[in-house]
């Protein structure tokens, strides 16, 4: 019994430390490139003998003791800093008003105003949706723009270099006959080896992708009536795209959603958002009658601009999150 336990613990320990037996189909990452031969040493600029030896001896001592001492000192100091900061913050937390009490200073007249007038001023049943897409719509526009900018910068950082490298190291696809095994050249950084004949993954994807897409659409469209909205619905939609890419390969998703589609749809959504909300803010600030109807609270067509804005945000979030996944795993979109 004890031997058995020890054996199980040893295999678990090996697995944790990464020493265990390797599965046969594991993709071993490539060796890092060998260090460049630095044959030419920097020249010694000190002509006088004793200065040079002093410097050399200092460097030697630094190599032997200094770095180790410094790392110990650094670790100790950083733990000390964190303990001091956490204890200061805990002392502050102990003085905060009690958790969940209705007389807390956070529940002030701003909240009363939002809850009591939010319904008929924005036309949305979900007060948070009315808050973020009507009162504070400019903030949400900034958030969408931040997401779009992050996606475009990741595209610039990863997409361009990968494409150049793929063109320079263009290698024919190798097919293993009989197993329908697709491999793009040597397995290098960021290139998966796809197995196209995975029946379980295909069946699960066939069953669940329509359900996930429908769920995402419901969450986006009902954003002003129920919890959810553009951000959470867009995240659900992007999981459907990621599942499709994993089950059928990135090429299949690439046919209907690629870099061009992403840029066009996201810029159009941002533009619609900016123009419609700009009109709404302009008329509201100048007391001009706005043509946008509020609708009755609780109907699907209510809440003024909240439904179209939720659709725009959902489109941007779905494209961005799928784009992050595709760029990080495949280097292209």
């Amino acid at each position: 019994m004890n031997e058995e336990l020890r054996r199980i613990w040893k295999s678990f320990f090996d697995w944790v430390m990464g020493n265990g037996p390797r599965p046969e189909n594991e993709v071993i990452p490539p060796e890092p490139p060998p260090d460049l031969p630095f044959t030419r040493k920097p020249k010694d600029k000190y002509s006088r003998f004793h200065e040079a030896t002093l410097k050399e001896r200092y460097n030697q001592w630094l190599e032997i003791h200094g770095l180790h001492l410094f790392s110990v000192l650094y670790a100790g100091l950083s733990v000390l800093t964190c303990i001091v900061i956490v204890s200061l913050l805990l002392a502050t937390v102990a003085e905060l008003p009690p958790f969940g009490h209705e007389r807390n200073p956070a529940n002030n007249e701003v909240i009363r105003r939002y809850v009591e007038h939010g319904g008929h001023e924005t036309g949305a049943q979900n007060i948070v949706a009315g808050l973020i897409l009507d009162y504070r719509a400019f903030d949400t526009f900034g958030e969408s723009a931040v997401l779009f900018t992050a996606a475009v910068s990741v595209l610039m950082l990863l997409g361009a270099s990968r494409r150049n490298r793929a063109e320079s190291e263009l290698q024919p696809h190798t097919y293993e006959i009989g197993r329908n095994f697709l491999q793009r050249g040597p397995p290098s950084l960021g290139h998966h080896v796809f197995r196209r004949d995975d029946t379980i993954l295909h069946s699960v994807a066939n069953l669940s992708i329509p359900v996930i897409l429908m769920m995402g659409c419901v969450v986006v469209i009902n954003g002003h009536l129920s919890p959810g909205g553009g951000f959470s619905g867009g995240a659900i939609l992007s999981t459907a795209l990621i599942l499709a890419a994993n089950a059928y390969g990135f090429e299949r998703v690439h046919e209907f959603f690629n870099e061009r589609t992403f840029i066009i749809s996201s810029s159009t959504a941002l533009m619609i958002y900016a123009l419609s909300k700009g009109y709404s803010f302009f008329t509201g600030a100048n007391h001009i009658h706005s043509i946008i109807p509020k609708g009755t609270i609780g109907n699907i067509l209510s809440g003024g601009l909240i439904l179209p804005l939720n659709l725009c945000v959902g489109l941007i979030v779905a494209g961005t999150l799928y784009g992050f996944y595709a760029l990080f795993s495949e280097g292209d979109m």
Partner: peptide, 26 residues
């Protein structure tokens, strides 16, 4: 009803954190 403002603030935080994480990972 509970306070609706922190929900909007947390949303902003999540979006910024996702963007910063993606950029740092790239």
């Amino acid at each position: 009803y509970v306070n609706p403002v922190p929900a909007g603030l947390v949303l902003t935080g999540i979006v910024v954190s996702v963007s910063v994480t993606a950029f740092a990972l790239a």
